[in-house]
Design a protein around this nucleic acid. Structure first.
Length: 531
RNA sequence: CGCGGGGUAGAGCAGUUGGCAGCUCGCCAGGCCCAUAACCUGGAGGCCGCCGGUUCAAAUCCGGCCCCCGCAACCA
């Protein structure tokens, strides 16, 4: 059995969850669910990053203690992931004492090893803020809060000897032992390594109280990135470099660290250097997805075009939101979104596509039973018509059976290939092609007419449709778990049983899995059309 | 010559290893009546940013130019 360990970045709690966080997290969830579906031993980690000067400030502004503040914001993340059916195995917070202890153990190890040494940090310091500022913090070269030009100042700090690991990391990147995808992102990073000097990085701060104290010098706290990165290990239960055989070993190294491009650089430099210093393996892959533009413009509060996850869920529901985020743009590139586009796609793919197909199929199946005079409550619990006949493919239509079988097999193959390569949008295309095909098949075969004429092949045609629907639902499950379950229910099946431990994926995706004894059940409208 | 990405039908985008230019929405014309004003079929609409080169063959490979966008590290 393969293992699959996927992470999102841990989100900095200076802001509430926004669409970018949501996008990364839903994508990770889709991939995690897919790997569970195919039987991999899967671990999906997300969480919140809760230390640093910014948090102190925000807490002060909110009139709260830092811990109260981070508790509050972290809870919002957890709440919304729960709403969105995110199936993370663990939610890590960097203020958890186990995490903090492990970070101290790690830094102590690196310090003793000589990879962390005393140095100086030089930067622009604002006396008013009692803080170092970056160029980007400044407005016209002035501190935005105090309207004063910060002065160049030096401060004692502990430095991490990142430069030492430069060659080894670059080699691993080039050889794809440490993959960076998509390819253009790998180019970006390797040319960065080649063209710029990899300098040592400051790993501690003196004036930041809200952080993890260095074990050997408590006047310093740990630089937030050093603290944050280790979550990928502590989230698995790793307690420090002494922890050689904990259960974290079953999952490390991570298979995919999913993130957006703003944090690629640090993930491709500081993090692998830390791992090498700690004597641990590098993650197999960093996958970088793009940013959203809204109607061609950057999303920003000042433009007033911010689309929040709550807005999306209110309009499209949980599954609609998950689907739209995943299908709106090619995964791995920037993409343009907007309410018009979302409405359009929702109606086309969800209301008119899968929603309508399920509705017409189930109704036809019911009618087929009604005409045949089958027993049972005909409107609520019709039996799948003429199922035995379908199994053996009697009659003129039997070549359809074969065609369905091979085409479904092909679809599964492509679907899996795409998701293994993180081509999320392409996997969705596979599903939508099946849906289109089924709509065409129904129109062509005219089962409503067959029913009227008591055509002996009605059962077979309907079986082909319903069994195809079962496969579509299964493929849909990573993207829209609730919808998949509803479709299963309509087919008289139980998604829970399908996902049970003893069930083999290979069996589930075989053509003909729909039992002839099952009862179909008409459900409600899956995706009401938006006008 | 800082790094990287993009310019393909009215809009938004796909086009792996060069081999008839595709998808969704919109538009037009038919069909169907099972279904969520849905679904199916056909059609109109493109000098694939510009110029040159390689090739039997270029959206795709090479060179040059124009325009747009992101990133330029201790900012999470």
């Amino acid at each position: 059995m393969n293992k699959f360990y996927i992470t999102t970045p841990i989100y900095y709690v200076n802001a509430n969850p926004h669409i970018g966080h949501t996008y990364t997290t839903v994508a990770a969830d889709v991939l995690a669910r897919f790997h569970r579906l195919i039987g991999d031993k899967t671990f999906f980690l997300t969480g919140t990053d809760e230390h640093g000067a910014k948090i102190e400030e925000w807490a002060r502004d909110a009139g709260l203690k830092p811990q109260e503040f981070v508790d509050r914001v972290s809870a919002k993340f957890q709440f919304i992931w729960n709403e969105l059916n995110i199936s993370n195995d663990r939610f890590i917070r960097t203020t958890e004492s186990e995490h903090m202890r492990a970070v101290q153990n790690a830094l102590e190890f690196m310090y003793k090893k000589g990879d962390i040494y005393k140095g100086e940090y030089e930067g622009l310091y604002c006396r008013g803020c009692e803080q170092f500022k970056t160029e980007r913090d400044l407005i016209d070269g002035l501190c935005p809060d105090h309207k004063v030009a910060p002065e160049l100042m030096k401060e004692e700090c502990y430095m991490f000897k990142m430069s030492k690991y430069r060659d080894e990391i670059l080699k691993k990147i080039e050889k794809d032992e440490f993959k960076i995808l998509p390819a253009e992102r790998k180019n970006e990073i390797s040319s960065f390594y080649k063209n710029e000097k990899l300098e040592d990085v400051s790993f501690s701060r003196k004036n930041v109280k809200w952080g993890i104290p260095l074990p050997w010098d408590e006047t310093h706290t740990t630089y937030v990135w050093a603290d944050a990165f280790l979550n990928y290990l502590t989230g698995l239960g790793w307690t420090g470099p002494e922890d050689k055989n904990g259960s974290w070993r079953e999952y490390w190294p991570a298979d995919v660290h999913l993130m957006s491009k703003d944090i690629l650089r640090v993930h491709a430099t500081i993090w692998p250097a830390m791992l090498l210093s700690l004597g641990l393996g590098l993650p197999r892959e960093l996958f970088i997805h793009g940013f959203f533009l809204v109607d061609g413009q950057k999303m920003s509060k000042s433009l007033g075009n911010v689309i929040s996850p709550e807005d999306l869920m209110n309009r499209y529901g949980v599954d609609g939101t998950r689907y739209l985020l995943m299908s709106a743009t090619p995964f791995g590139h920037d993409g343009d979104i907007g309410w018009n586009k979302f409405d359009e796609k929702y109606n086309a793919d969800l209301a008119n596509g899968i929603g309508n197909l399920v509705a017409r199929s189930i109704t036809l199946a019911e009618k087929a039973s009604l005409i045949k005079g089958d027993r049972g409550d005909l409107t609520q619990n019709s039996k799948i018509p003429e199922a035995e006949q379908a199994r053996y493919g009697a009659g003129k239509t039997q070549n359809h059976n074969l065609k369905f079988k091979t085409e479904i097999e092909q679809s599964w193959k492509t679907y899996q290939e795409n998701l293994l390569e993180l081509k999320i949008d392409s996997a969705i295309d596979v599903i939508n092609k099946r849906i289109k095909f089924l709509d065409g098949y129904i129109t062509e075969m005219k089962p409503w007419e067959m029913i009227k004429n008591s055509n002996e092949n009605t059962g077979e045609v309907m079986y082909n449709v319903l069994e195809s629907l079962r496969h579509v639902a299964l493929m849909l499950w990573p993207f829209m778990p609730e919808t998949a379950e509803k479709i299963y229910e309509s087919l008289g099946l139980d998604m829970g049983k399908e996902m049970a431990e003893d069930k083999k994926f290979e069996d589930a995706i075989e053509w003909g899995g729909l039992s002839f004894e099952t009862k179909i059940k008409k459900g409600g409208v899956l995706f009401p059309r938006i006008f």
